[in-house]
Design a protein around this nucleic acid. Structure first.
Lengths: 158, 158
DNA sequence: TTGAATTATGTTATTACATAACGGGAGTAG
DNA sequence: CTACTCCCGTTATGTAATAACATAATTCAA
């Protein structure tokens, strides 16, 4: 982790082990199958790298890690990321220019994120959108997507 | 406006006239004076351009417009933008990589934005943060800043 | 099962967004 | 006056994302 604005260690990890990743990849494949979409090799590889990283990861880090030796070309990864995002398998974090695996497949698509500026990890929380929905209504504004990102310090980094 | 994903016109404007801009610039100068900060020429020019634009504007558009002839250097504008943001005079819109003048000097710094994908304009709304605050509390997460951006269609573009 | 349409990938190049680093000048406190 | 701090101009580079076009894989209908 290259985030350290502090001196403590950042090993309060929940990283998925390889079994966990395999399981998530299998779920993702099933989901695509059900949706009539193709989970191709580069898409799967991209998702694997996102899952393996413990927190939001940058597109160019994915590009660097994509092949055992040498980097991928940017469009390969960016196209995969777009697809995965459309499928609801990952989220883009706007305020970080980064991507994180979706951890809440259940809900009505509007997640919020708690982003630790110290350790770089994120927590996805389901949020009631009533506030912004109400304001939009008052302005006769039709909301399509909502981005909610809170930056600060997580429990372990306080 | 180069946003048109539609064919109607986008002249539902509230652009400030030059008097309005002058007034806002004077306010800004007063605010800096009160804060013991310097409102220098490049900062004032940057703010002027942001105010003159009717909606979020990109840094490189500011760079292009900075001088009557020829562009400014990026650091000139980015430094000014940082300063203006710290002073609460402008907001950065994360999901657009763009900047907009702050329209609500009164409140406890957490604005939300309604961003029209059709005409490119934004509306700043004051929002109660109870939802995310509550979630953060549950996770023992210390929130520093919150980004809330809703994309969709404004009243005039429905 | 062949071939046309669609969808996805590979590749090159470019565009867009943002900051590092350094030298110099203007304001200011001792 | 001078040391200090803050800000600016400039060059260079770093980082993020997409345009455009060629090729390959998959699908589906005839």
């Amino acid at each position: 982790m290259t985030h350290a604005a502090c001196d403590h260690d950042h090993h309060h990890d929940h990283a998925l082990d390889s079994n966990g990743i395999e399981a998530r990849l299998a779920e993702a494949q099933a989901l695509c199958l059900a949706a009539g979409e193709r989970m191709t090799a580069p898409r799967l590889r991209t998702l694997e790298l996102v899952l393996a990283h413990n927190g939001p990861i940058k597109a160019y880090d994915l590009i660097d890690r994509f092949h055992p030796e040498g980097a991928a070309k940017p469009p390969t990864v960016y196209r995969s990321l777009s697809f995965l995002e459309q499928m609801g398998l990952i989220h883009r974090i706007e305020s970080l220019n980064a991507f994180v695996a979706c951890h809440d497949h259940t809900e009505s698509h509007s997640a919020a994120f708690l982003l630790c500026e110290c350790c770089g990890k994120s927590e996805e929380v389901a949020l009631n959108l009533s506030g912004i929905t109400q304001k939009a209504l008052e302005s006769d504004f039709k909301v399509e997507r909502v981005t909610i990102e809170a930056k600060g310090r997580c429990k372990a980094c306080r």
